[in-house]
């Protein structure tokens, strides 16, 4: 459900190579995963899926899979 373009824009926010962002990638290990990144991701998800993620839920996730789970739950 998540496109290549989405992952590539997400990769820019957290300053990583999109190829590295596999499903089990641990976001919490990144220095770049801060509140500013969270804001950018909220906007990115809103642009792609027209949903506004709850910031507390977003900052409590660990992996890319968790992020996809959050989006899926809201889209459904």
């Amino acid at each position: 459900m998540v496109s290549k373009e989405f992952i590539s824009e997400f990769a820019q926010i957290v300053e990583q190579d999109p190829k590295d962002l596999h499903n089990e990638f641990d976001l919490t290990s990144l220095e770049e995963w801060d509140s500013l990144a969270a804001i950018s991701v909220i906007v990115l998800v809103d642009n792609y899926f027209n949903i506004v993620l709850d910031s507390d839920m977003l900052t409590s996730i660990k992996t890319m899979n968790d992020l996809y789970g959050l989006i899926e739950k809201r889209v459904a």
Binding site: S35, I39, I42, V52, S55, D56, L58
Partner: peptide, 12 residues
């Protein structure tokens, strides 16, 4: 200020 919470509030 919880910046991302305020941001998400404003967008919704």
């Amino acid at each position: 200020m919880d910046g991302s919470a305020v941001f998400s509030f404003a967008l919704s």
